[in-house]
């Protein structure tokens, strides 16, 4: 039996046929209303701009801005699976939630301090290897090679595979007996490793998978940056007698900086937020040993059903991420540098 019955097909089509016309009708209504408001009542010369913006703004308000503030409200409530409708909210409960975030384990045994340290290690190690390996491969690929394009398309593949498949596949390949990682370890005379059982090795395998996943992006970014460096610089350096390493430090690195800086910033935010790899590999286990901040949030909310607590916890994460990014932009000179 293949589940795709005519009924299932009709269900999908039916919902689309209902949803899309209603959505378009709604868009038109919103536009007409905005037009009326801007042209007849406020009389602004930007009427057309606001009319064109209005549907998008309504969508963003409904699904991003409103949920954001609703989440803030939830942070001051004691909502949970059992108190889904009968919850109460007050400043006191909110403060209690905030204290809980820092004192009570986020899950069963791991508290936020451990998670923060683990996330910092996770992010740092990953981004470090993404940038160094990506830059290394990018520089090698920028040299004259016969098979350059072949290498390039092969090396970019890890980025192209859907993350869900990457994580689940690697999870299988870290199997003690049948995964190829241990088979290869054995064939070169090393002891096979119990990747699933030991939190340390589990984390190592997660980091390995995420490095495998993230290098191609940095490699492509580096290649793009290298191609914009004029060859003359290297010629002059050559005449002055600068060797390969000196050229790299004094020409390549500074000129790559403006393109690598925003890419690294993106990389930090992405790695901090990397839910799929950790969650799909071991669901944060064994014994909560591979949870990072983001996956712990998901587990606290959708597996332990602590909604009020989870909402406050997510706010704390938001503040952290905002802090990290703003510090980073200050140090690195911000996005402005790049667009110029």
């Amino acid at each position: 039996m293949s589940g795709l019955t005519p009924d299932a097909i009709m269900l999908g089509l039916g919902e689309l046929v209902k949803l899309l016309p209603i959505a378009f009708a709604l868009i038109v209504v919103i536009e007409l209303f905005t037009w009326f408001l801007c042209a007849k009542i406020i009389r602004t010369k930007f009427t057309l701009a606001y009319v064109m913006l209005a549907p998008g703004i309504v969508g963003v308000m409904a699904l991003i801005v409103f949920p954001f503030f609703y989440n803030m409200f939830l942070a001051f409530s004691n909502m949970s699976m059992t108190k889904f409708l009968t919850f109460s909210a007050s400043l006191q409960i909110g403060l209690q939630n905030l204290i809980d975030v820092f004192t009570v384990p986020v899950l069963q045994r791991t508290n936020i301090g451990t998670l923060i340290i683990r996330t910092i290690i996770w992010t740092f190690v990953n981004v470090f290897f993404h940038v160094t390996l990506g830059m290394f491969l990018g520089i090698l690929l920028n040299r004259p090679l016969k098979l350059k394009n072949v290498y390039k398309s092969l090396l970019i593949l890890p980025w192209a595979v859907p993350e869900v498949i990457t994580s689940l596949t690697w999870r299988n390949e870290f199997h003690y007996q049948y995964g190829f990682v241990n088979i290869i370890l054995k064939s070169i005379g090393l002891e096979p490793i119990m990747w699933f059982q030991d939190p340390f090795w589990a984390m190592i395998s997660c980091i390995f998978v995420n490095i495998w996943l993230g290098v191609p992006f940095m490699m492509v970014i580096t290649l793009g940056g290298l191609q914009s460096i004029p060859q003359d610089y290297y010629d002059v350096a050559q005449i002055d007698g600068a060797g390969g390493w000196k050229q790299f430090v004094n020409i390549t690195l500074p000129l790559l900086r403006p393109i690598l800086t925003p890419a690294t910033a993106l990389g930090i935010i992405w790695t901090f937020n990397k839910f799929n790899v950790i969650y799909l590999m071991y669901q944060g286990g064994p014994i909560e040993g591979t949870h990072i901040l983001i996956t712990a949030m998901f587990s606290a909310i959708f597996e332990n059903y602590r909604y009020g607590f989870g909402a406050m916890y997510s706010l704390v994460l938001f503040v952290m991420l905002l802090g990290i990014s703003s510090i980073y932009y200050k140090i690195a000179g911000g996005f402005k540098e790049v667009s110029e």
Binding site: L11, G12, E15, L16, K18, L19, L63, I64, F66, P67, F68, Y70, N71, L74, M79, I269, F272, N273, K274, F275, L293, I294, M297, F298, I301, F302, Y307, G310, A311, S314, L317, F318, L321, L322, S325
Partner: peptide, 28 residues
């Protein structure tokens, strides 16, 4: 700022709103 929201931060409020509107388990 929207780019700096932690992944899945809005999942809970959206899920609760969708539950109230009976929109979970629908394509819509």
């Amino acid at each position: 700022t929207q780019q700096m929201l932690p992944a899945g931060m809005l999942l809970l409020p959206i899920y609760i709103i969708a539950t109230r509107l009976r929109l979970t388990n629908t394509y819509t």
